[in-house]
Design a protein around this nucleic acid. Sequence first.
DNA 1: GATGAATGAGCATTCATTCAT
DNA 2: AATGAATGAATGCTCATTCAT
Lengths: 213, 213, 213, 213
Amino acid sequence: MAIKERKEDEKKRRKDLILQAAITLIQQKGFENTTMDDIAQQAELSKGTLYLYFADKSNIHYAIKKKALILLNETLQSILQKDYNGATMIKEMLSSLFDLIEKNKAFTQAMMLYEHNVKADLTHGIEEQECYDLQTELMMLILRSVQIGLVDGSMKSDVPPKILTIIIINQITGILTLILSPSPKKQKILAEYNHSVTQLMEVFLNNLLNINE
Amino acid sequence: MAIKERKEDEKKRRKDLILQAAITLIQQKGFENTTMDDIAQQAELSKGTLYLYFADKSNIHYAIKKKALILLNETLQSILQKDYNGATMIKEMLSSLFDLIEKNKAFTQAMMLYEHNVKADLTHGIEEQECYDLQTELMMLILRSVQIGLVDGSMKSDVPPKILTIIIINQITGILTLILSPSPKKQKILAEYNHSVTQLMEVFLNNLLNINE
Amino acid sequence: MAIKERKEDEKKRRKDLILQAAITLIQQKGFENTTMDDIAQQAELSKGTLYLYFADKSNIHYAIKKKALILLNETLQSILQKDYNGATMIKEMLSSLFDLIEKNKAFTQAMMLYEHNVKADLTHGIEEQECYDLQTELMMLILRSVQIGLVDGSMKSDVPPKILTIIIINQITGILTLILSPSPKKQKILAEYNHSVTQLMEVFLNNLLNINE
Amino acid sequence: MAIKERKEDEKKRRKDLILQAAITLIQQKGFENTTMDDIAQQAELSKGTLYLYFADKSNIHYAIKKKALILLNETLQSILQKDYNGATMIKEMLSSLFDLIEKNKAFTQAMMLYEHNVKADLTHGIEEQECYDLQTELMMLILRSVQIGLVDGSMKSDVPPKILTIIIINQITGILTLILSPSPKKQKILAEYNHSVTQLMEVFLNNLLNINE
DNA sequence: GATGAATGAGCATTCATTCAT
DNA sequence: AATGAATGAATGCTCATTCAT
């Protein structure tokens, strides 16, 4: 039914509109300081309409996170299918990840902030679980590239792949936190050393995985 | 003047009392979910009294962070003065850091949460600067041990020490985030791999700094 | 014109459909807790359609009340036309009333709740007046049976029939309130004394009207 | 401690002030249509202050009901201790009850409305239980006077005292509902018959309890 | 007629901060 | 110094009603 499809489409567009408005504001003021009124105004919709598309504020958060994770996982997935060796693979993966993040600070926030902020009162239903699953999937994608690299000899390590993956994830988290830091620190540290995050990751990976190009 | 000193002392004791109350509650409920009422009650003081010692809620946050950083820096400083080689030094430092953190989750929260939460409205005066300085000092202490290690041969790397330090800090941040994560992730990831954070750091450092024991 | 009639019929059917949906929900959750969305969903109609048949939510209320009162009055009317003496008549009337109520708690609610709930902002037009008239008619029907009973000697009282009628109505109201009460009271009182409302009315009537069977 | 007492007193005065404001407004607009803002404004306090004295809106309702019931029970209790026969006792009781009600329509509303309105979501704690207990006590006081009347011969009935009491309570409820009715009904019915509620009760009681003066 | 997306006024509740005593 | 009552702006969420299609 074409009509139903168009409606479905329209609904998705609206959801995206709201999400984009939320992302813009969260980027400027952070999640907690962004009110539903703000989002409504930014989206040029009424507050009530927001609740037509998202059950509550936390669901907007999860939707942003989910969107970011899906995009990211898709990108990593496509890299995994290319004819790269493991070392190239993981470097490409992280490069893509940081590209994505640079383009959209709110994505970064969505991925990071959530951990601390969302009120732990009740479980937030399917949305939360979905995000958790996507995060697990993300980890798996990285794990795969590490395993490939160890097998094809493009990287060497006695450490179990899973442990290596956790260390890589931790490093990513650390960098994301650095990026999200209020300006003085970011500017003073990142700028002072005059190294992009990509370069930091490069050095980190070369050492962790004994990559020799 | 003895009287002035005693008063100063008394004031510090009171501040500590409040801080301890705040730490206890933040540990249980997180910073955002801890109200000034809660803190006052926990400290067995009136709410008004809190404002006699701290200009506002964010200052309580900074004070906790400051306290944590001072304690940490002192510990690292004392390690730096011991007759260790660089590799041992840095391992001792991180071991101490995680000991401290394990004992006091609110310290961890103070160090991490702030980055995202504190309202960016106004500058938070000296407190914020002090925390920033202490964080810089912390970095310097780690940097020193890296430099020592590279000189005494207990670690090897072509990477500039400053870069290595940033990577180490990032890894620490990542682990702290992991520790602070709501239970499912912490339990499923940390527990599943059955590796303590200390062990993770050990592997990470050995690889980053080519430590051979 | 047959077409017009059919349309009229269809309209009435739709109105009844909506009303039935509303009744079902009000029975479960009460009038205030039943939203127009709820009703639309239950009736499998769109929310907008509701407003095609009822000017506003309060009119749905009045329509339910009206429906209940019409049904009730018809029943009482038919009893009035039977070859009963006054005493039997009034007992039959009340028995029918409670039968009706037992079958449909929403009717009871419609009859009772309205008094307190409906916003007194504006006059609710004809609907309200109609309900008022029907209530007056209900009273008249009871009054007639009282008058008949006093004349045929099946009941005795020096009190003017109108006063007796008001007392009877009050007792009915009281019982309806008891029935509508949240469970603890209903269960503890009604159940404890193990007397059905019909029995209560029986005793009450026998005494008020000196009925001797 | 005189200070503590004074504070306690002051607190009670404030609670009463708020309650009185609430009563005034509820009398005019009903409970549902009275907002916390309204009450705050009427009490010439800020909205926040209301929450210093009452945990939530429903507690204001319960407090009014409780106040009404305590006052009523005290009055009935004092009548019970007088040297009246049962018939006089119960008439005095109902007379007092209606006096009280006439003076304060919001009391009546508090007693009646609650049954239907307060959201049945959760139990409302001690307050609700206290009101329930007070209502039970009220019933007991009436029951006692009935029992006394049956024993001292001032009233006669074969019906168990408990049943008589329920019938009396039902009649009271009915009259209260009548009183609370929006003006047209009250005026048209009450005025038309030109009988005060006290007179209605008199007739009702004489017949139910076969009182002969 | 029918739809259902959009509206937005309205509401209860929270909490950091102030200030008279 | 210490108190804690008072404040009131801020916020997430609801829901009857409207109206373009």
